[in-house]
Simulated assay, not measured.
Amino acid sequence: MARMMYREAVLSTIAEEMERDENVVVLGEDIVGGNGTAGGPEAIGGIWSTSTGLYGKFGADRVIDTPISESAIMGAAAGLALSGKRPVAELMFADFIGVSLDQIWNQLAKFRYMFGGKTKCPAVIRMAWGAGYNAAAQHSQAVHQILTGMPGLKVVMPSTPADVKGLLRTAIRDDDPVIFLEHKALYGVKGEVSDDKDFMIPFGHARLTRAGNDVTIVSTGLLLGFCEAVADKLAAEGIGCDVIDPRTTSPLDEEAILDSVEVTGRLVVVDESNPRCGFAGDICAMVAEKAFASLKAPPLSVTPPHTPVPFARELETAYLPSIPKIEAAVRKVLSYR
């Protein structure tokens, strides 16, 4: 085992896969230098420092600095994937998918189906997402609820450095397009990771981070840590919470959630996407439909309000689900007898 930051897990996994397979290429805005140094020793490797050193090691043919055009990046990734390469393309902020939705939604996601399964499209699209970074309305959004609703895409949301290693390696080796969402507020978080260069985590397998028999809490990304803090606090009072990290929203490990609710009878879903047509509502609906007889209380969701992400630090803090809000929701479902 090794200990590293979330961003280091991203970088090291990409480097290991590029060493293993010469067809793996990376592309994106400013990924070579990020500091005007063209990949030299002072290069930071993009604003998130997730491609530092790749240019010097693998060269311009496999580490491609692109123009500031998200549609061009996605179009290039699609073409590379169809021609036998395994592109790992970076959108600097997930918010920028708007100008490249045709390439993602109508091209990447549908090639396998439109060509009758006769071709593969092994593209990984990495995006930094999420609030808590004081980056305002156009650089702080959650987009997983949009992308999860697009058939043909696999959507991955790692919450720990260990999950980054296992899930990113699975994504790069997958023959279908994968959206890999990295919460920007987690880049500096440290954790233990496997040294095994073939360590992989299969898609559609949730992770149980806390165990208890009273309430099921489902969350991912930055807010997962908030949920774990609530579970730890309540455990001291004799209240047990199952905390489930789905890891992937498509495919979704419905079985893990339903099995837990069948024991606890209570569900709280904590998510950073907005409440209307959001991921939390989707999980609550799924449980209400498939485990209604097990429920002892109405499923509750804890989400931001249906507004853009505010810029002011105090407003952003109020916008995001918080530990007190999550605790209040858990206590509310426990109040039903």
Rank of each mutant, 00 (worst) to 15 (best):
R7H: 10
C227H: 14
D198F: 14
I146L: 12
V261P: 00
G265Y: 08
P158R: 12
P67T: 15
T216S: 12
G84L: 02
M92C: 07
V189R: 15
S250N: 09
L334G: 11
S159V: 07
Y187N: 04
F226H: 14
L208V: 15
G40Y: 09
A318W: 11
L267C: 03
E228L: 08
A43N: 06
T248V: 09
G191T: 08
M127A: 14
P177E: 12
G28E: 00
R112Y: 08
V268H: 03
D95I: 06
G34L: 04
R3I: 08
D30T: 11
V333T: 10
R112I: 05
P310C: 12
M286V: 06
K110H: 05
A137F: 09
G56C: 02
P177L: 09
E42F: 13
E70H: 13
R86Y: 04
G130W: 01
A2D: 14
P87K: 12
G132A: 10
Q145D: 08
P305I: 14
D196W: 14
C284T: 06
T119W: 06
S194I: 03
E262W: 08
G130T: 02
F279A: 10
D253H: 08
D61Q: 12
A9E: 02
V218H: 06
I31C: 01
D196Y: 15
P177F: 05
F311I: 03
G265V: 04
A9H: 03
E17N: 11
G281L: 00
A128W: 03
A137T: 10
Q138T: 13
A9L: 04
D195V: 11
A72Q: 07
S140I: 05
E182L: 06
L267I: 00
D198G: 15
G278E: 06
G149V: 10
F199K: 09
V164K: 08
Q107T: 11
V330W: 01
G34Q: 09
F203C: 00
E22T: 13
K110G: 02
F93P: 00
